[in-house]
């Protein structure tokens, strides 16, 4: 069984009036099946309101299924006694770093989680050091989070999650509020945690460029999983993505336009390196061996 497995998962937001009568029911997740293997890097795309964040909140047991089931590392999130172990298995990083940082010194913020679950003091400091190192923020350990840039704050927030030693981290639009450098830092950190520590990563984002290195891309629409595949498979279907209010990376659009103008360039070009390679081939310029 995968580390995250959903079977016919349904979530309905039910609104009631003052007397408790049901006013409206909104189906946010509509029979979702999902199976994520440990160590995978999964990206979830979908327009605002497509159900991405609702799904993410189930993985962290912040929400429980209305119907169907979701297991995190074999634990059913619907069962009360599993809530805390689930949250220790799957950590979550949110959009706004300012809402996730509570302490006035970086290292204390990172140590807050482990302290809360009763980790012995010595081990807390060990974990703090290790997690700050893994996000490249060790030299800022005694700084105030207020003076950090957006990307640095977000990395401190990630370190706070890493210090809980989760097997899986869900990133819910972690770069939406960051400048270009901050975005790069955070995405690089997510990949490093995935590769070096084997952490399973679920990345929810609206930036198509951030998805090209994922193992698998999942596209959601109206609470359903509507597309699934490698980034190349997904981004080869420009028309379909546009229907779901999504896009493809700039480089993919450019490669597509060039192909439509008659140049011999394949579908699904994802990165700048690939497109440079194709253009050099067409121009019959030898790329110098690096």
């Amino acid at each position: 069984m995968g580390i995250i497995k959903a079977k016919q998962l349904v979530h309905e937001y039910i609104r009631r009036d003052e007397e408790g009568n049901v006013e409206s029911i909104q189906t946010a997740l509509d029979h979702v099946d999902l199976d994520v293997e440990p160590g995978q890097f999964i990206a979830i795309l979908g327009h605002n309101g497509s159900g991405k964040s609702t799904l993410a909140k189930h993985i962290n047991a912040l929400l429980t299924p209305t119907e169907g089931s979701l297991w995190v590392n074999g634990m059913d999130v619907s069962e009360e006694q599993n809530v805390l172990p689930v949250r220790q298995t799957a950590g979550m990083v949110f959009q706004n770093p300012d809402n996730q940082i509570i302490a006035s010194v970086v290292e204390e913020d990172v140590g807050f989680g482990p302290e809360n679950i009763g980790v012995p003091t010595e081990e807390i400091w060990q974990r703090v050091e290790e997690s700050l190192k893994s996000v490249g923020m060790l030299e800022y350990r005694t700084h105030s989070p207020n003076k950090l840039s957006g990307g640095q704050k977000q990395r401190v927030a990630i370190a706070g999650v890493v210090a809980m030693q989760p097997k899986c981290i869900v990133f819910d639009e972690p770069t939406a509020m960051l400048d270009p450098n901050g975005r790069k830092e955070v995405i690089r950190t997510a990949h490093e945690l995935n590769q070096k520590k084997g952490v399973t990563v679920i990345l929810i984002t609206h930036y198509m460029e951030e998805v090209v290195d994922a193992d698998r891309v999942i596209v959601m629409d109206q609470g359903k999983v509507v597309m699934q595949g490698t980034p190349r498979e997904i981004f080869s279907q420009v028309g379909k993505l546009k229907e779901y209010r999504l896009d493809v990376p700039q480089i993919t659009i450019l490669a597509d336009l060039l192909r439509q103008s008659g140049l011999d360039i394949p579908v699904g070009v994802l990165t700048r390196e690939e497109l440079v390679g194709h253009i050099l081939r067409l121009a019959q310029v030898e790329p110098p061996a690096k």
Binding site: H47, N48, M177, H206, K242, R245
Partner: peptide
């Protein structure tokens, strides 16, 4: 001030 932060590509 950053009117498109957090919006999906079509919304942007």
């Amino acid at each position: 001030d950053e009117p498109t932060a957090g919006l999906d590509p079509a919304g942007r």
